[in-house]
């Protein structure tokens, strides 16, 4: 049995993640992540480069450990965050998927994304776009996410943004 992650399989996982976020299926979304997964959206250091070292430079979001994503989901679904309810309607479109590096059961996958957002509260529609860099790992017959880096290109945040809307 092969453990190499194919382009088809990688693409399928990325599309699945997008769908789970779009439809607020956060428990299933969390299941995609390994317990020690890294989730990282760097800030921009200047006009041309993002921050590179999350321990010495600021990120928009940085977590090591799925536990932190569980905290975020808890807040989002708690009913105690005015920014999170009613939720924005979002739709992720993912394209240009390619495997940048593959070694054993690990694959580094690059993709491009647009996340459209409709905020019903303000009757306001906008979008963010950028690149994803996923590190996928084939574990016990499933592909799971070891690392997700979100390079947000339009980084002037319109009011707020959360893990499901980037």
């Amino acid at each position: 049995m092969t453990t190499t992650i194919t382009l088809d399989a990688a693409q399928d996982l990325l599309h699945r993640e997008a769908h789970l976020l779009d439809t607020w299926q956060f428990d299933a979304w969390l299941d995609l992540y390994l317990p020690d997964a890294e989730f990282w959206m760097p800030a921009w250091r200047d006009e041309v480069s993002t921050t590179q070292d999350p321990d010495r430079e600021l990120s928009l979001i940085y977590y090591r450990g799925r536990r932190n994503l569980e905290d975020r989901v808890m807040r989002l679904t708690s009913g105690h965050s005015t920014a999170s309810w009613p939720p924005a309607r979002v739709l992720h479109l993912i394209s240009n998927v390619r495997i940048a590096r593959s070694e054993g059961q690990i694959a580094d996958v690059c993709s491009a994304f647009v996340c459209h957002r409709h905020d019903t509260r303000m009757n306001r529609t906008d979008y963010v776009f950028g690149r994803y860099e996923h590190r996928l790992s084939f574990e016990n017959g499933n592909i799971r996410i070891a690392r997700k880096k979100i390079i947000l290109l339009n980084d002037v945040i319109a009011t707020s943004s959360d893990i499901y809307s980037v």
């Binding site: 979001i61 920014a83 707020s160 959360d162």
Partner: peptide, 16 residues
């Protein structure tokens, strides 16, 4: 990041 960012867990509830 957790508290102050517009992508964090506190500031969005202020700005909204």
């Amino acid at each position: 990041e957790d508290f102050f960012n517009p992508t964090g867990m506190a500031t969005p509830d202020d700005t909204v």
